[in-house]
């Protein structure tokens, strides 16, 4: 009877473990090891829970008494053998988990001979990725199958870098540098949320990690470097990679500028999307509806003011709003121009 109940509980929990899609798609070498430890721990947990639940359920049915039964149970005070067993067995099980974990982490942190090094800087509420050749991007672009070493820091408060498909996470802490190793194994576009509470815009501090075939990555890097002072990086729709549709990713939705216009307008729209302005502002032409900052549809027709508002937001605060907008001083003059034009054209 006890064993039957135990088996039933085990089957049910196993079914939950197997049939519910627990882990997101796997897109890095590190995730494989993480998943291994995850499932190891899951099976141990299923077994333990099945035992506990089975004993409770069995006792509930077997040993319940009628309310008028005032007798006492058998006075059993203990059993040394049992007590040793249930001390030793869990100890062994957790040590197994511990050793597997230690090995997995040690392997996950190997950087190999020639990692790609990228500097990551977090600000409220945006990410910035600096490539070795001087290219700067608000999204993370990686070549597939090459180990990268991220060096993270923050300019204001603590943020945290995470890509669920990579399984790797690391806080970006002001004042120190932290590091993270990733070896992407699958081409595609993945969400890159900030996971450490960092203020009002925390929920909206989302970027994307785009894994590209090696040649595509190289050509992106080269164009981006050439045009660093001019046009922004090309639009990042993963048309050719194809396999991964952008999922649940804000920027994915905002990528298409509704406003069909000249080149600089397109550039402005792209910049607006790339920099996550829509995370905080309402702006009809971009389809942005956030209300952390003022509605950019009502901007005064004053180019200098708008420009200053972007580069140095604290200088003149819009009434009723706090000084939380990150300064976008990394934008080049040309980029700023097209962004300002785009905003002003979209305003009434």
């Amino acid at each position: 009877m006890l064993i039957v109940i135990g088996a039933v509980v085990a089957v049910v929990t196993t079914a939950i473990a197997i049939f519910i899609p627990w882990l997101p798609a796997q897109a890095s070498v590190q995730r494989e090891r993480i998943d291994f430890v995850f499932w190891l721990t899951t099976w141990i947990s299923v077994a333990i829970f099945a035992i506990v639940a089975a004993v409770i359920i069995y006792c509930v049915f077997k040993f319940r008494v009628r309310p008028d039964d005032d007798s006492d149970g058998e006075p059993i005070h203990g059993h040394t053998g049992l007590e040793i067993a249930w001390t030793a067995v869990p100890a062994i099980l957790v040590l197994v988990i511990g050793i597997a974990s230690a090995v997995a982490v040690a392997r996950n942190e190997r950087i190999g001979p020639d990692p790609l090094r990228i500097d990551v800087t977090a600000v409220q509420f945006a990410w910035r990725f600096d490539y070795p050749n001087g290219v700067t991007s608000p999204t993370l672009r990686l070549p597939v199958d090459r180990t990268v070493l991220l060096r993270l820091t923050s300019n204001d408060v603590i943020h945290s870098f995470w890509v669920p498909e990579f399984g790797q996470k690391q806080d970006a802490v002001p004042g120190i540098f932290t590091s993270l190793v990733i070896t992407p194994s699958k081409v595609g576009r993945y969400p890159l949320p900030c996971t450490e509470l960092c203020g009002l815009g925390h929920a909206l501090m989302r970027s994307a990690a785009i894994v590209m075939p090696n040649d595509e990555y190289e050509s992106w890097l080269a164009t981006a470097q050439d045009e660093r002072t001019g046009v922004p990086p090309p639009d990042d729709e993963p048309e050719d990679e194809g396999e991964e549709e952008p999922e649940g990713d804000q920027e994915g939705q905002q990528d298409d500028p509704e406003d069909e216009g000249e080149e600089s307008a397109e550039a402005g729209a792209a910049l607006f999307a790339e920099n996550g302005c829509g995370n905080c502002h309402t702006f009809a032409p971009a389809g942005a509806k956030a209300t952390v900052g003022p509605n950019l549809g009502d901007l005064p027709d004053d180019e200098d003011y708008v420009r200053q508002s972007i580069v140095e937001p604290g200088a003149q605060l819009a009434k009723g709003y706090q000084n939380i907008m990150p300064p976008y001083s990394q934008l080049s003059d040309e980029q700023l121009d097209s962004l300002v034009q785009y905003l002003l054209r979209g305003s009434k």
Binding site: I34, V37, F38, S45, S101, A104, V105
Partner: peptide
């Protein structure tokens, strides 16, 4: 159940994924 999910969180590779 809560304690077992604590074990998940205590295991380094898993917590790196699930923290926060």
């Amino acid at each position: 159940i809560g304690g077992l999910s604590g074990i998940f969180l205590g295991a380094l590779p898993i917590v790196i994924h699930t923290s926060d």
